[in-house]
Nucleic acid binder design. Structure first.
Lengths: 241, 241
DNA sequence: AGGTGTGAAGGATTTCACAGCC
DNA sequence: GGCTGTGAAATCCTTCACACCT
């Protein structure tokens, strides 16, 4: 299982290293740091400390420093981080220093909202192709990309290969999601953002990231519910359920 | 720090207890277990083992058992879990064994998609009021709830108090999100699901759960990018950035 | 055999605390 | 004085492994 025959040199500057085993939580926060930094820059700030950056996001200063340190040295002691440089470097790390074409499957309400979403472009994501099964949807124009229209599923593989698209979004009903994922994977997609409320099983080498809108509300109701948890458990125990 | 003067009885059924310090990850998975169980039930299954439930979600069997055990005893040794009972009990725990009225702020593309989303109702969430600043949007009907229409922001507090709404959704542009959150909080909302791409700071006792669509894609691009991470870091170091 | 519930072990992540630099 | 980068400690979470049940 240990497939890394790395040089046995006991010492030396193989550089910070360990890249590739950055904690998942750190990577997720990296996106939030980037977003916050972009806001600060827009606000005219040029420099920020780990404390201020963390405070804006509800994270400790030590956490911020540790997270950034996984990726190299970014700060200046006694000063903080230079916002514009840090942004550039985080974008490189997240690989959003380029344009990613994205394929969207499903042109229903959610799909339409995603097509119109203004937040993707400034982050480097462009919905470059849209597919649907519904003949009524096919042929409708894609607002973000003049000239292109919603295509039938039959054209999915060809289009994705031709445009060399690597990321897909699934916005179809639950019962069509696995098939959509399989078709995307088969067409060479490497990562999928899934909005359908089902657990998808990856067929082949693809990375699936799911966002379930109802689950997000459920998590809120769990925490916000006025009855204490102990009662909710007790109630279930009794209640002859 | 040990503030639990629990009976010192060495033995005996004080019942699991410790409720209230359930690990966050366990609660998040609980939602996924519930969803999967609902699917299994719909498929005609009546019983499931921790192994099968976990496998469907990419989680170990031990993890499933441990997670469920935080909330009590649910299974039958040698058999597994009775699906229908487990569903009922998890719903109680997540507090979705009731209807939660939800206030939506923002009737743009995303807001409209959320109003039309079919996934909320079966989970117990009902969008009961919608607000927007745009006069063109105000007065438009809410599809999910006949008779009700999009209201102006000025009516937000009154309506939320009158309908006793405790959960809100923010689907407005980034620069309007904090104000929306403040108004919701002021009106007595306890939990907010925020889709605007900004870090909101809670004013008062409110719980904010944010979902940033672009961030989700960013996480994919990080992991899917063909250039190895080490190069992305090195490139940034060099490049005179 | 098959399967849960759970203490104990192991890993992973976060926080502490401080050396070192501006 | 302010602030980063980082080992070490503390905490949190997951996995192991097994008693116990059916």
């Amino acid at each position: 299982m240990d497939s890394s025959p790395v040089s046995e040199h006991p010492d030396e500057q193989v550089v910070p290293i360990g890249f590739d085993d950055v904690p998942g939580p750190a990577v997720r926060r990296l996106s939030l740091y980037l977003r916050q930094l972009e806001n600060c820059l827009a606000g005219g700030q040029t420099t920020i400390s780990s404390r201020d950056l963390g405070a804006a996001l509800g994270v400790t200063d030590a956490q911020v420093r540790k997270d950034l340190a996984y990726f190299g040295q970014f700060g200046h002691r006694g000063v903080g981080y230079k916002i514009d440089r840090l942004i550039t470097r985080i974008r490189k790390i997240l690989a959003t220093d380029r344009i990613w074409d994205v394929a969207l499957v499903g042109a229903g309400h959610l799909g339409t909202a995603l097509m119109a979403y203004r937040g993707f472009a400034p982050k480097g994501f462009r919905i470059a192709a849209v597919f649907d099964v519904d003949p009524a949807k096919i042929g409708q124009p894609i607002p973000s990309l003049s000239g292109r229209v919603v295509q039938p599923m039959a054209e999915l593989a060809d289009t994705i290969r031709r445009l060399d698209i690597k990321i897909g979004i699934i916005a179809v009903p639950a019962d069509a999601a696995q098939a959509a994922a399989d078709q995307l994977t088969e067409a060479g997609i490497l990562g999928i953002l899934n909005f359908a409320p089902v657990a998808l099983v990856p067929k082949g080498k693809v990375l699936i990231n799911s966002v379930d809108l109802a689950v997000q509300l459920e998590q809120l109701s769990y925490r916000v519910c006025p009855e204490p948890l102990s009662e909710r458990i007790a109630a279930a125990d009794v209640a002859g359920v």
